[in-house]
């Protein structure tokens, strides 16, 4: 091989090597060699509300419910309730409702105490209550997200992985109930696509069904399982990219029934 040929061969090799390092334009998601990171991150309600608010101001104050929490020894229910209460705190932030956020800050602490993580949450809960009193909404939002993440981290440290999944599920449920309710009151094709979450539900359902049976025993958790199954069929957009008004109403009813069952059981 001449020196010139060798030069071109090496140049080609370097070019191909450089190209191999570029990210591909398309990936085959079915490729068994792909490595997925197992940690799932569930969007917080404010992420979704931010999108909806870009279409016009919404009446978030109507979504605030003053529900009393009743504590019992069922840690699985308490974990879901914790996720729900934090998500209601986010709704309170969106509505800038001082009283509801102060009340939810106190509920968060009571639930954290019941889960055995009050020392980790206390500082955040106090910051939520005080920040809401002063109307410092950016700070309250951050503290709510920190509270949720702190509890999840602590549960992981304590090897309470089933509770991690239930906190996430409760948080997602509370946000979805509020979103569906807003869309039901003020339906638009464009806004309905925010409920297009089939893969997220599939993941939540898989996480829930993967929990040990002792963590999902009882009527309440049968209802959780059935509702997730039902929502999976509803929260999928049609060929136009929309979710029909009828389905939005069904999603609203299904999520509301489950939220009430968690509070009242």
């Amino acid at each position: 091989m001449s020196r010139l040929s060798l030069f071109f061969a090496v140049s080609l090799l370097i070019t191909q090597w450089g190209r191999a390092q570029e990210a591909p334009a398309k990936i085959n998601l079915e490729d068994p060699d792909l490595v997925f990171v197992s940690d799932s991150v569930i969007p917080i309600p404010l992420e979704i509300f931010a999108s909806l608010d870009k279409m016009g101001a919404q009446d978030w104050g109507r979504q605030i419910e003053s529900r009393d929490i009743r504590l019992d020894a069922n840690r699985s229910r308490t974990a879901m309730l914790f996720g729900l209460v934090v998500s209601e705190g986010f709704i309170g932030v969106q509505a800038q409702d001082k009283e509801s956020v102060r009340r939810l800050g106190r509920d968060v602490l009571a639930l954290a105490r019941s889960l055995g993580v009050s020392s980790e949450v206390e500082e955040h809960a106090n910051a939520i209550v005080n920040g809401a009193g002063r109307g410092e909404w950016d700070m309250v939002r951050q503290e709510l997200d920190r509270t949720r993440q702190t509890v999840i981290n602590k549960m992981k440290e304590l090897r309470d992985d089933e509770l991690v999944a239930l906190v996430s599920l409760g948080g997602w449920l509370g946000g979805t109930e509020a979103l569906a309710s807003v869309l039901r009151d003020n339906y638009s094709v464009e806004g309905s696509d925010l409920l297009n979450q089939p893969d997220l539900i599939k993941q939540l359902k898989s996480d829930f069904n993967g929990l040990p049976k002792r963590a999902r025993r009882g009527d309440l958790f049968t209802q959780v399982s059935q509702t997730l199954e039902h929502l999976e069929s509803l929260m999928r957009s049609d060929e136009t990219g929309a979710i029909s008004e009828g389905k939005v109403i069904e999603i609203s009813l299904a999520t509301r029934n489950l939220v009430e069952a968690i509070y009242e059981s």
Partner: peptide, 20 residues
Amino acid sequence: RESWWSGNLEPGKAKLIQVQ
């Protein structure tokens, strides 16, 4: 967001993170 992902990567290898 307070949530984040982490791990260890080998040169030339890739990992995928699912996000909504």
